[in-house]
Design a protein around this nucleic acid. Sequence first.
DNA 1: CTCCGGAGGA
DNA 2: TCCTCCGGAG
Length: 247
Amino acid sequence: MLVSEVMLQQTQAARVADRYPRFLGDFPTVEVLAAATPAAVMAAWQGLGYNRRAFRLQEAARRIATDGWPAGLEGLEALPGVGPYTAAAVACFALGMGVPALDTNARRVLSRWHGRPLSGAALSTAAHQDLPPAAADWNQAVMDLGAAVCTPRQPACDRCPVAAWCTDPSVYEPPRRQGRFEGSLREARGAVIRHLVSQSSATVEEIAERSGLPADRIGGAVDSLRADRMITATGSDAITLPDGGSA
DNA sequence: CTCCGGAGGA
DNA sequence: TCCTCCGGAG
């Protein structure tokens, strides 16, 4: 449950669909995930993007293996990589708690429903007011509606089951656009991680040659990843994924 | 090329 | 509140 929700952060369900069962096959329990090497976790994560999520997920698994599952919403949110949405989704779907799970779909649907852009505390307040006792069903319905009908650009109000009660379908504020991927640090960081998953140890020059990216960009990515503790330096200029020892 | 998508740190 | 983290699909 926690695994699937973290995978679904910033990643469309279609891409999670085939990786989630494989990930659970590799790491069937939190204990197995906690004890795995970061290289193995990264290998299972390959292609999902935002690789820090994988490291944080394993850190969360280690904490759970040691301390047990947090009981409530606040405890869940204190886990690394678990924010307001993921904590609420786990609390509602796995623990049966009556809390709204507010992802980007829910934010858009509720904004249109109420006729004004909602975010932060206002969104939370509105959602709590709208939330019925059957919280899990409501969360599922709102998110599905946003994904399938109440879409960003051209909402299909003609086949929306609740269009009659909606205030203003035109309400939509597009998320801020991200910079180009080509030429970005993200691209180089991704190349470094991808290489280390298959080679386990490498130099900047090797990664540059294999990826086709300039060595100075790979070097910058290595510095950045080291600062994030996502890779470690081993020899004179060799790097690897972290050894698993410390969290 | 554009679009899509939560967490966390500054 | 703003910015950065990835990668695949259309």
